[in-house]
Simulated assay, not measured.
Amino acid sequence: MQRIRNTALGVAAGTLLAAVSTAVPATAAPGSPACDHVAVSWAGGSAEPGGGSDRQETALVRVKNSGNHACSLLGAPSVMLTTNGVPETLSQQPGGHLVDLAPGATAKFTVTFLSDSGKNGNEIIRPEQAVVTLPGGTVKTLTWTWGDVTRQEAASRPGNFVSPIS
């Protein structure tokens, strides 16, 4: 009986750990300096300025090491779209591999979102900014130019998400 109880507690603890680990933002790679001297900019994708396509779109983000020392990133950044200071936090895709950035080197990640024309009755947000928190804690803000976005924060399978840095 005790063995069954211990097994059940172990399974419950493992489930809790898995749930917590997916909700925690990525951190700097162990033993590597965080990338705190970076420039972040939009760098392409399928999204068009002004938006309104009623499709899932992508916006590529470039991260450039503007410091004098190499740094490393691991995982997906946290991205919040803000409207009048009210955030919509995008889901982070799991995984990724260690990306080492020499001075001047670049990496990228993708912001995927459901563009919205406003005529479909969806609950939408009109982002003004994308607040990006890189693994390791460096925060940068980009002006959002891609139009309205369908709110997805409470969706069981969100269409708005961020890829790991590559």
Rank of each mutant, 00 (worst) to 15 (best):
S32Q: 15
A23W: 00
R151E: 05
E123A: 04
N160S: 15
P49Q: 08
A28C: 07
T83W: 09
T133R: 14
E123R: 10
V61C: 12
R62M: 12
C35D: 13
R151W: 14
A43E: 09
V61H: 13
A107T: 08
T82V: 13
A29C: 06
L60D: 05
A102Q: 10
M80F: 08
G95V: 06
S78W: 04
C71W: 13
P127W: 03
P158S: 14
G10R: 11
R55D: 10
N6L: 14
Q92L: 02
C35F: 12
V99A: 11
A29I: 03
Q56K: 09
S166R: 13
L74T: 11
H69W: 03
V38D: 11
V61G: 13
D116A: 10
G137W: 07
K140F: 05
R62F: 04
S91W: 02
G10F: 12
M80N: 14
P127N: 06
L60Q: 10
L134R: 06
A39S: 15
L9F: 13
E88S: 10
G67F: 11
V111H: 01
G85R: 08
T89R: 15
S166Q: 10
G31D: 09
G10V: 09
P87R: 08
S115T: 00
V20H: 01
T110G: 01
N122A: 07
G75T: 07
L81R: 08
N68W: 03
L74A: 10
N65T: 10
L73E: 11
A39P: 02
M1F: 04
P49M: 02
A107R: 01
V162E: 05
V11L: 15
S72R: 14
A76G: 13
I125S: 06
N120D: 04
N65M: 10
P158Q: 03
H97Q: 14
P135A: 08
A19E: 04
A19G: 13
V131Q: 12
A102D: 10
S53I: 02
T27Q: 15
D36N: 15
G95A: 07
S32F: 14
S163Y: 04
T112C: 00
S115W: 00
L90A: 09
T106R: 00
F109T: 02
P30Y: 08
G85Q: 09
E48H: 06
A34H: 09
T110S: 06
P49E: 08
R3P: 00
C35Y: 13
F113R: 02
N84T: 06
S91F: 01
T106W: 01
P127S: 05
T141W: 05
P127I: 03
N68Y: 03
R126A: 06
S41R: 14
A47L: 04
R157S: 12
Q152F: 01
G50V: 04
G121F: 01
T106D: 11
T145Y: 00
N122K: 02
L134T: 07
L142Q: 05
T143S: 08
G45F: 05
T143V: 11
K119A: 07
G67L: 10
S46D: 12
Q2P: 00
L90F: 08
R5V: 15
D36T: 15
